Amino acid sequence: MARILYGVMGDAGGHINRSLAVAAELPEHDFLFVGGGKVEEALSRGHDYEPLPMLSTVLKDSKVLMAETALHFGKTITGYGKIIDGLCGTIDSFKPDLAITDYEFFLPRAARKYGLECVSLDHQHVLTHCDYPTPPGERLSRFFTVASARRLFSRVDKFLVSSFYALPPKDDSTEVFPPIMHRDIEDFTSSEKDHVVVYMRSGVSPSLLEGMRFSNRDFQVYGLGAQSAQGNLQFLPSSREGFLENLASAAYVICNGGHTLTCEALHLGKPVLAFPTSFFYEQYFNAVYLEKLGYGRMGMEDCRESIVRFEQALEQCRARLAGIDLFGNGQVAERINRLLASG
């Protein structure tokens, strides 16, 4: 048995969901999770947890608020030295064999100070450590996203990138794997009903609400809490089992293009219509590759027209998704065990 110290960015569900899925593949090892926000969910999975201040992206009305995000970053790293010293104390007492970070800011710096190997395991570094032709548009968003990823989240020894599009790594420090997902998704058999599952982390815009109301389908909306139905719009409470049940039987999915939900939808054979959050380049990039691979489409400003055009392409997208294998859990677990063995 080895000990793994796992730092996770907890501002949204994708990072902790991926990290807990990794831990579930390695039950023979002992994990201690550190981070803020949703990272405390590790406790409910039987893992130890220590809180850390959290760098997070501030979203409102389907936009990244750049000034507020920068201000939040500045406030969060106040007391930087004390935080790093505290983490070094955690390393000294827990005595991990390896540190893993899923886009967490503090752990890689503490690990480097202590002399502990630290590995990045996330999706975001596909933007900085893989080769690809730069998509047109979103230049400013790309600049800030790539610059912050390199400056804030790249002080590690190796990069393990989990992605539904297999781009070639730039150098030997990087390896690319298929997506990591919770295995509970394998408990659900895909079918096809008429409803659409909708999850928009940054909020559902009035334009999208209007576009959905003009459709003949029922839209099951998550992320806004349980509310009274509005015509063909149902606002459902958060529930992992209920969500996956509805996802497995949906006609398709509407989301911002976040990597975790996109991968779960694609695994179940569901085409994805992505409306990326403004100035959220990773979501934009995911939407670009949904179109490149034929798995979905990127929504336009006219949401109603986007839905109409997307539904015309549904059968083509479903054909592209037939038979694809997106589970990278086992490959990633094997790679971590080899890292532990070589250390």
Rank of each mutant, 00 (worst) to 15 (best):
A319E: 06
V156P: 00
A24L: 10
S190G: 13
H15Y: 07
K38C: 02
S191P: 08
H123T: 15
P206V: 02
F243H: 08
F327I: 11
S278D: 13
L43Y: 00
S239V: 07
K38H: 11
P136D: 05
V39R: 01
G37R: 11
V8A: 07
Y295G: 01
I91F: 09
F31E: 02
E138M: 13
G231P: 11
D97S: 11
L52D: 01
L107I: 08
A110C: 09
D187L: 15
M1D: 10
E104Y: 01
E50D: 01
A248N: 04
G203Y: 15
V8T: 12
Q283D: 07
E138C: 09
D171F: 12
R142I: 01
I16G: 00
K113C: 04
S342K: 15
V272H: 06
L293P: 08
N337A: 12
Y103N: 13
E28T: 12
A248K: 02
T78R: 15
D102V: 00
S342D: 04
A42Y: 05
H195M: 03
V161R: 00
D61T: 07
G269E: 11
R213I: 03
T128N: 10
D131S: 15
G7N: 00
V272Y: 08
E282R: 13
P276V: 07
E117Q: 12
L224C: 09
D194C: 11
D97P: 04
Q234A: 04
G37E: 01
A229K: 15
Y222V: 07
Y199E: 01
G225H: 08
H72Y: 08
A166H: 13
F106Q: 11
A250K: 03
L266K: 02
Q227W: 10
L167E: 06
A287G: 05
A229L: 03
A265M: 08
Q124Y: 08
A333K: 05
H123E: 02
F31P: 03
E291Y: 02
C88M: 15
F164S: 01
I254W: 10
G86D: 15
D172V: 07
C263E: 04
Y295M: 05
S191E: 14
